[in-house]
């Protein structure tokens, strides 16, 4: 058993043979907090999709710690939930019980207590019966974090969790991230706010289609690295040749 929660082995991910993430090597240690940063179009979300298994690598291999595939919790970028669906906060959060109860398992009294607890932990007590269509952006994100809490996952992937979220909500949700760290869960989050990265995430991966730097946050966030990332070309060369790097 290695200490790695995720191992990238010369991974290239992309769409239609065009790479969005190029030749990534490295490990995310178990129980670590890792931020993924980089400009728009750098391949950050693509990388998470690869880890979840929603996207097969074009080449290379993504290895997960034993049995981890079933214990991943993934929070995609905000837009994915159909907010017009007639569903209340309680039921949305209760979906997090899927990993424990599956298709047919009954939600018992203890489970209901856990659901109430998760809703309270994100500060939404009293909102259980509110339709999700009436929630603000911040409240919606809180509910989704409550669902993550219930998933009891060993690896938690967050895609821009604090975009368009106010300071108070961000601070509350960051406390949950710290709680996950204390429970020795692995958290990987795509972020844009470098201030949050410095404060909360000890490890950082800076990518711009290719990995620019990966390691201790302070050493990654040096001006020369950030500048290199910013120079990344939004390449979509119609005459691109087949990549022959090993």
């Amino acid at each position: 058993m290695s200490r790695a929660a995720i191992r990238f082995d010369n991974v290239t991910l992309g769409y239609d043979r065009r790479p969005a993430v190029h030749h990534l090597d490295g490990e995310v240690a178990k129980g670590s907090l890792t931020a993924i940063i980089g400009p728009n179009g750098a391949g950050k979300s693509t990388l998470l999709k690869g880890v979840v298994g929603a996207l097969q690598p074009l080449s290379g291999k993504i290895g997960l710690a034993e049995g981890a595939r079933s214990r991943i919790a993934y929070l995609p970028q905000a837009a994915e939930v159909d907010r017009t669906f007639p569903l209340n906060v309680y039921d949305l959060v209760a979906m997090g019980m899927w990993s424990a109860r599956g298709l047919f398992g009954a939600i018992g009294r203890a489970d209901r207590a856990r659901i109430e607890e998760a809703i309270a932990a994100v500060g939404l007590a009293g909102f259980e019966r509110r339709p999700i269509g009436t929630l603000s952006g911040g409240q919606m994100q809180r509910s989704l974090f409550a669902r993550l809490l219930l998933q009891d996952a060993s690896l938690i992937l967050l895609d821009e969790p604090f975009t368009a979220i106010d300071e108070k909500t961000t601070a509350d949700l960051l406390n949950l991230v710290r709680r996950w760290r204390d429970e020795e869960r692995t958290v990987v989050a795509v972020l844009h706010d470098l201030d949050i990265v410095r404060r909360v995430f000890p490890q950082t991966l800076l990518i711009a289609r290719e990995p620019i730097a990966w390691g201790e946050t302070d050493s990654v966030l040096r001006p020369e690295n950030l500048l290199r990332a910013r120079r990344m070309i939004e390449a979509n060369d119609p005459f691109a040749l087949v990549c022959d790097r090993a």
Partner: peptide, 19 residues
């Protein structure tokens, strides 16, 4: 369950199940 979840949040359902 899968029918409701697939309507509300298909990405979530795919991340936890193949149902």
């Amino acid at each position: 369950r899968p029918l409701v979840m697939e309507c509300v949040d298909p990405v979530f359902l795919r991340s936890v199940s193949r149902a």
